[in-house]
Design a protein around this nucleic acid. Sequence first.
DNA 1: CTACTTTGTGTCAGCCACTGACATAAGGTA
DNA 2: TACCTTATGTCAGTGGCTGACACAAAGTAG
Lengths: 190, 190
Amino acid sequence: MKEGSASTARERLQAAAVMLFEKQGFDATTAAQIAVEAGVTERTFFRHFSNKREVLFDGEERVRRGLLSAINQAPADISVVATLFHAFDEFRPELEGRQDYAAPRQRIIDNTPTLQERELAKIASLTSDIAFALEQRGASPLEARLASQIGMAAFADATAEWLRDGSVKLSERFYRAEQVISQMTTAPSN
Amino acid sequence: MKEGSASTARERLQAAAVMLFEKQGFDATTAAQIAVEAGVTERTFFRHFSNKREVLFDGEERVRRGLLSAINQAPADISVVATLFHAFDEFRPELEGRQDYAAPRQRIIDNTPTLQERELAKIASLTSDIAFALEQRGASPLEARLASQIGMAAFADATAEWLRDGSVKLSERFYRAEQVISQMTTAPSN
DNA sequence: CTACTTTGTGTCAGCCACTGACATAAGGTA
DNA sequence: TACCTTATGTCAGTGGCTGACACAAAGTAG
């Protein structure tokens, strides 16, 4: 009742959650409160989101599909790491288009351990799917697992840093990470 | 009252938890149940462990200290990745000595998404401390972050696989992972 | 040896995340 | 028109977890 009804209950719940989480913090905000703000009942909140955290983790499948399809379209004659960074760059416009929604969300996550855990789980799940995709393209299981691990670590790190501080472009952050990884295994540390 | 009293309440709670989690599953086991089995009250359970999951995550600090000290004792003239694997090998005896406790624990975690999340958080926390240690030894911040990510991914992967299937020695799993990482950025994927 | 302090525990009331069951209203379909 | 589906409300209940208070055992200080 408080939010406009020119949107679905689900969307109103997400917007109300982001607003309240930013204002009061995640822990101090109850599901019932979000529901009231969105003009529905607590029960309806839990029909749309399986738990309180999920209200912030909706786009996961979109990211998954985007990255996997970019990997499958990458050239076949490059290293696994190069394949991943090729895919990240293909997917980059989608991230850049969502910056306005993603930045406040990132701020909330940065302040909330339980959401950071959820974010780690999301990255781990993506990582596992990416490892599978690399294996399909000919990598060994262990190489696929390790490459996807460092690749997704770089992806998540670059994206989060970029959302926190937009003064370095996302493309630049990806590029730098790839350079570091390429040299990491050959050069001594000092 | 059911467990012998020749041990602390904390130890009895841990033992009771492992037993019940294996028998009934994590979700189907209540904190109150564990407490009764250990001869204390639910409130006492939560005095020893800040939440139900923590009863399985006690050795974390031991691992952290062990790995960090091993990193600091590694030779200075090798690559960051080599530094990490050197440290893993130094720490290996401690893992091998705990295999009997760690294996059932790993089985429970493998069956329980919420515990897998906690395990990811633990690895991420260790990873962050290890990145800091590498930086102290002269690595750049980005290199430190990425190297510690892939290193800890390899460490966690090798350890978990070894606990699930002891037929390949832990030293061998570490060795293989290091080989794969060294070649990852240079060779094409097929 | 007594008084004080610390540490570990029990008891109880209560909040909140989350669920199952049942009812109802609105919109589409046979 | 009768039915079915979908989204929601209502309500009662379980379980994780916390704060407050009381108490007992084991130091520790004087």
